[in-house]
Design a protein around this nucleic acid. Structure first.
Length: 463
DNA sequence: TCGTTCACGC
DNA sequence: GACGTACGTGAACGAA
């Protein structure tokens, strides 16, 4: 596939973007090296502890009996063979090349408690070997780490980051997040600030398809698409704070259905994902769920109980339910969006290339989901890049002391002088709400940017 | 050195 | 009616 900045504006965006990102690279981000070293040792001790625990189990002795001196807990090949060949367990799923999978989801589904030690060891090793090791390796003598931000590596003309990758530092898992982000500090007397676009890809998608229902969701701050989908998926009249799990159900709908659907996923995967969110077993076939399964839901009853009342008695029933939800989602709710997808693919098939609203062209062989996702993903990032460049220019012109240090697809990380934070916020709002829509007339959605502030001299984490 | 599998981000 | 998640980086393993 070939990418090209077709218009002059697209070329200028990349040119200026490279200069601004290079400035951020030169600034660098402060790392607490002593903390990293200590934490590395601590993690090694914890990993050893789990290794010893595991070594005492019958399961591990069996593994050692098979692999002798070559036994290695980190070998997925070995683990797959032990579980699915020697112990003859039916693999819950398979890898691309056809062997039984050993990822966390597969291991959890087996319900063998010894495997939890392996999962825990993997998590800790990931934190130590991928993140802390990189921070230590990539930090200069001055105490600053300088991640690369590239604009020439990604097929959609998004950015990438490497050495270290600043764009995949743990955030969701609380423990991993705390350990890794504790290492990342502002300059002395400064504070870290992160400015995030709200639902940027959904917003930019709407600039392409202009679906009226979606437009309404994006303009009406009292409406909430994910919450509405949660109501439909979980058979609820309302989803307010009176339901203790309302937040989890909304997240399940968002991350288990809505977002994957926009990327081109389908109901069978969504059903699995949602079951994981609400802790219901994925038992394929006709086997019925027990009424006391799944997380606590309403008034001490379980989610399974609630599903039974609504005619969903098994995983198969739930898959069928999700099929209907999907059908309703695209053929009733967002039918204009669906029409745009069909038209957009047909247009690509006729022309052999596609052009983004930001003036970039992709040509070559693409699959359906790629044709639909590339323009949205690319243009969304270009809004971030535009904002990054403008803010960088303002900081230079006004000789502010704050420094742009990184960018994560839809957010900007700033090492800020606390006195300048209100100015930075004001500047960002002006760029996003005025300059950006003035420059790109195709922006017909209300872009929002949210500014998160961390403490003075405090690391990149909230307590 | 390179393909595979895993795990982290948006 | 069948089909069927986008984009990255990096570590470890193990075969070549």
């Amino acid at each position: 596939m070939k990418m090209k900045a077709t218009t002059r504006d697209a070329y200028i965006l990349v040119h200026k973007g490279v200069l601004s990102l290079a400035r951020a690279e030169r600034q660098g981000i402060r790392i607490d090296i002593e903390y990293c070293e200590n934490q590395r040792k601590k993690l090694t001790r914890k990993i050893d502890y789990y290794q010893k625990k595991l070594a005492g189990t019958k399961f591990y002795k069996r593994w050692q009996y098979i692999y002798r001196g070559k036994t290695n807990v980190y070998s997925n090949d070995q683990l797959s063979n032990v579980l699915y060949k020697h112990m003859k367990i039916d693999p819950p799923k398979f890898t691309e090349s056809g062997q039984g999978a050993t990822d966390e989801e597969a291991l959890k589904r087996l319900g063998i408690s010894e495997l939890n030690w392996i999962i825990e060891m993997r998590k800790l090793a990931k934190i130590r070997d991928t993140y802390l090791e990189q921070f230590i390796r990539e930090t200069n003598k001055d105490g600053y780490m300088r991640p690369f931000f590239n604009l020439h590596t990604v097929r959609t003309f998004r950015s990438s980051s490497s050495d270290p990758n600043f764009q995949n530092i743990p955030k969701r898992d609380k423990e991993a997040m705390r350990i890794c982000r504790r290492a990342i500090l502002p300059r002395p007397g400064h504070m870290l600030v992160e400015a995030d676009f709200s639902a940027l890809e959904v917003m930019i998608g709407a600039c392409y398809h202009k679906d009226p229902i979606m437009m309404n969701y994006l303009h009406d701050k009292n409406s909430d698409m994910h919450s509405d989908m949660a109501k439909q998926i979980f058979f609820l009249e309302t989803l307010d704070k009176s339901i203790p799990t309302h937040n989890l159900l909304r997240q399940a709908a968002k991350n288990g259905f809505v977002c994957p659907q926009f990327y081109g996923d389908y109901y069978a995967n969504n059903a699995q994902s949602i079951c994981e969110w609400v802790r219901l077993p994925i038992n394929k076939g006709e086997k019925r769920w027990s009424r006391n399964w799944g997380m606590e839901f309403l008034d001490g009853s379980t989610i399974a109980e609630h599903f039974w009342k609504n005619g969903i008695k098994s995983f198969n029933d739930f898959v069928e339910h999700m099929r209907q939800v999907e059908d309703d989602f695209w053929n009733r709710r967002f039918r204009v969006y669906q029409q745009w997808k069909d038209d957009w693919v047909a247009q690509y098939q006729q022309k052999g290339y596609l052009e983004m609203l930001t003036g970039f062209t992709c040509s070559g062989v693409m699959r359906k989901n790629e044709i639909i996702n590339y323009p949205i993903q690319g243009s969304a990032f270009h809004c971030l890049l535009f904002t990054f460049i403008q803010l960088d220019q303002i900081i230079i012109e006004k000789k502010w002391d704050s420094k742009l240090v990184g960018q994560i697809h839809d957010s900007i990380v700033i090492d800020a002088n606390p006195e300048e934070v209100p100015l930075l916020e004001e500047a960002l709002i002006k760029i996003v709400k005025e300059e950006l829509p003035r420059t790109w007339k195709w922006i017909i959605v209300p872009l929002e940017i949210e500014v998160d502030v961390y403490g003075i001299d405090k690391p990149w984490l909230k307590d």
